[in-house]
Design a protein around this nucleic acid. Structure first.
Lengths: 208, 208
DNA sequence: CCTTTTGAACTGACCAGTCGGCACAAAAAG
DNA sequence: CTTTTTGTGCCGACTGGTCAGTTCAAAAGG
């Protein structure tokens, strides 16, 4: 609610130039700290210090701690959605093969942006960030859901499958496993994890 | 840190009597508020007020906000572990059928103790609660893992399956879906959700 | 009586947000 | 070319308020 910030529309999405740099540094510092301590426990002073920036700069760029966090969520969700959309766009043998690629892409995303993934998992269901959750559901879960529907149409998955629930299930499964791996079993090879999850989804898990 | 709290070992697990009542009320109030606002944002004053208890009582019973929260986590994890263990103990046609029962039990638990489930999901990977996480892994995930191993031994699941990863996967999948259902689709019948998840796990999802 | 709870006052630390000012580059004026 | 102005990004001390935890005398309970 400051009169400042977002003053220059010249740089459009604020990605370029000095200011863009500062914002990236603040996102990074904030997500790291919030992943460790939680949103409320993370002070703006600490974020500024880790980013190598004065406290005033945070408010100059974002107006409030909440706005910084909202921007951070949007930014990360956009990256995740892009990563999944790209994986879905790549040519594959079948819709189910595309699903495998989505799982791998999500695993890789968490591997690379672990702190963001933890923040996402922790804050996903907080009422305060409704807007961001909505974006997550349409842009990220939407990718899963579309691929699942395609697989149903192609006859690869059972007709009448509740694709919305299945999409959430796969997303949550991958997120949980990937975060656990990063936290407790970092040398467990990503491909092994991917193989196990894919088995689970395909039903190749069954020995019958 | 405080010299007070945990004074009487007479009531052992502090479940009975006047003091036990107070503790239960405090657990409930705390878990509700923390689910909504997060740990740090929830003040002891607010917890005491919602529990209908004086602030001093919180510190008389738990010694600190942190100890209250640690007790709350332990308490909830124990309940969850009990619920799953009971489901696993019930007679069933096969290990895989037991797995289905576990999923249903977990769904029901989240349905009943939604706020706790949200707190668990949010705080699960925070370094501060290492001890509780360890208990979660041995007592809750352990139930899943044992059933999965049994299914492997019975030849119902593929030999060599990474049961540890699979256990985490199923647990995270169910937790995510159940919380999403509670938050956004409360009238979606629990049994439908259960059916979809069970299909996913069994591989009956495949139409081939 | 001994345990538990109450309620209110107090402290000391901590924190989001503010504000006046600095640095610097590029444009405008001379 | 030199000087002045302007806009932008950044700085960091400061403020007003909040909160965990303490203390304690008195009451309730069993």
């Amino acid at each position: 609610m400051s009169t400042r910030g977002e003053r220059t529309e010249r740089t459009e999405r604020g990605e370029r130039g000095r200011r863009g740099d500062t914002r990236q540094r603040l996102y990074r510092a904030a997500v790291d700290l919030i992943a460790e301590q939680g949103y409320t426990a993370t002070t703006v002073d600490a974020i500024a210090e880790r980013a190598g920036v004065a406290k005033g700069t945070v408010f100059y760029n974002f107006g409030s701690k909440e706005a910084l966090f909202a921007g951070l969520l949007d930014h990360g969700i956009e990256r995740l959605a892009d990563a999944l959309a790209e994986a879905a766009r790549a040519p594959s043998a079948s819709p189910v093969a595309t699903l495998d690629a989505l799982v791998l892409a999500q695993l890789r995303f968490v591997d690379e942006y672990g702190p963001f993934a933890r923040v996402l998992l922790a804050e996903m269901w907080r009422a305060a960030w409704q807007e961001a959750v909505l974006r997550l559901r349409t842009s990220v879960l939407g990718v899963y859901e579309r691929v699942l529907e395609e697989a149903v149409r192609a006859g690869e998955l059972r007709e009448g499958l509740d694709t919305a629930t299945a999409a959430t299930a796969v997303f949550g499964m991958v997120l949980t496993v990937a975060i656990e791996r990063r936290a407790l079993r970092p040398d467990h090879p990503l491909d092994d994890v991917h193989a196990t999850l894919v088995e689970l989804i395909h039903g190749r898990i069954s020995g019958r």
